[in-house]
Design a protein around this nucleic acid. Structure first.
Lengths: 155, 155
DNA sequence: TCTAAAAAAGACATCTTTGTCTTTTATGGG
DNA sequence: CCCATAAAAGACAAAGATGTCTTTTTTAGA
C-alpha cells in the first residue's frame, strides 16, 4: 500500500512553511544589510509575492518580526525573532480554530470518556506539542547551518 | 498562548471521520439486520446524506465494505471489514497526493541532507504510522465498547 | 414486465486556503 | 512639498474539500 503524506502534507499549512522559510531568510540575509525586502524573499524562496506579504504581515503583527515602510524599508528581525517557537508560528499563520479533542473525529471523546485510541494519540500529540514549544527559530539555525541554508532555498 | 487543534483538526480529514464512524455504525447495526441503509447511517450519525454516500462508495470500491442496490439493499460488512487498518481508511478517503518528505516544508530535506528537526519528526511520524497500521477497525470495537458506542452517535 | 427501493453517479453550490492584482498608507530624501 | 519606494490593505480568482440536489442504474418482489 502506498503510504502518503500523513504528516508531510497535513501537519503544517503552506502558510506556516512560508512563514518559517521567510523568517529564516530574513535572519540570514539580514546579517549583511539592515532591511530585507519582500520582493527579494519571494523570488529567492519561490513563494508567491503577495501571499507571502500577507503571511509576513501576520508575523509583524504578532511581534515576531519588525517592518518599515517606504524607501530603505523592508523586514528585519527584533529581540523576539530568534526566541520564537514553532508553536508560535503555527498560531500566527493558522486561522483561529476550535479545538476538537478527538483526533479520530469521534464524538464525546475526552479524558473521562476516551475513545479506544485516546491515550495513545494523546501521547503522540504531547510529544508533538512539546517539540513545537521547545524548538525556536534560533535552535534551527544553530544545529546544522550549512545544509540548512540549502534547504530553504529555491527548489 | 492558545494551543489550537494541531493534531485534532489536521491529521484526519472530515471524510476519514465519516468513513470510520460509518463503518463502525454498520458493524454495530449490522448485528441485528443484514443490511444497513445510508439514510439511517446519515441521520443517526448526523452526517450529510449524499456526501456520506460518496465516502461509503469509496470504501466499497476499496473492498472494505460490501453493498447491494435495490430493495433490501444497503451496506454490510465482509471478511475484510474488521481487519481494515486506519491507514487503509486514510488511503481510501484521501485524495491521492504526493509525498513531501519534509514536514517543516523545507526544500531538499531528506535523510542524507536532513533539516534540523528531521530525525525527531521522523520518529514521531514513524510512531504515528505504526499506530495507524497496527490498529484495525476490529481493535477499536474490542477495547472499550460501551463508551465507544456513545462516541460515534449524534452530538 | 412493472414498480419501488436503494446505491451509484453526476452536476452544481459553498467554504476555506491559496494565489493574483490593484489601491492605500507610510517613510526617507531631494 | 513632492516623489519614489515598500509594506499594508482590500478586492477578486483558482483550487480543493465539503455539502446539496437530481438523475441513472441495479435489484427484489408483485
Amino acid at each position: 500500500m502506498l503510504v502518503k503524506g500523513i504528516f508531510a502534507n497535513m501537519i503544517f499549512s503552506k502558510s506556516f512553511g512560508y512563514a518559517l522559510r521567510g523568517v529564516l531568510y530574513i535572519i540570514m540575509a539580514g546579517e549583511k544589510k539592515p532591511m530585507v525586502q519582500l520582493d527579494e524573499i519571494a523570488s529567492e524562496l519561490a513563494i508567491p509575492r503577495h501571499f507571502l506579504g500577507k503571511v509576513m504581515k501576520k508575523l509583524v503583527k504578532g511581534g515576531v518580526l519588525s517592518s518599515l515602510k517606504g524607501p530603505y524599508g523592508g523586514f528585519c528581525t527584533n529581540e523576539i525573532t530568534m526566541e520564537t517557537t514553532l508553536l508560535k508560528l503555527v498560531d500566527l499563520t493558522g486561522e483561529p480554530e476550535e479545538f476538537t479533542s478527538c483526533v479520530l473525529r469521534l464524538r464525546k471523546c475526552n479524558a473521562e470518556n476516551p475513545c479506544p485510541m485516546h491515550h495513545q494519540i494523546e501521547s503522540l500529540r504531547d510529544q508533538w506539542q512539546t517539540l513545537l514549544m521547545s524548538t525556536t527559530v534560533g535552535d534551527l539555525l544553530r544545529k546544522d547551518m550549512a545544509d540548512f541554508i540549502k534547504s530553504i532555498s529555491v527548489i
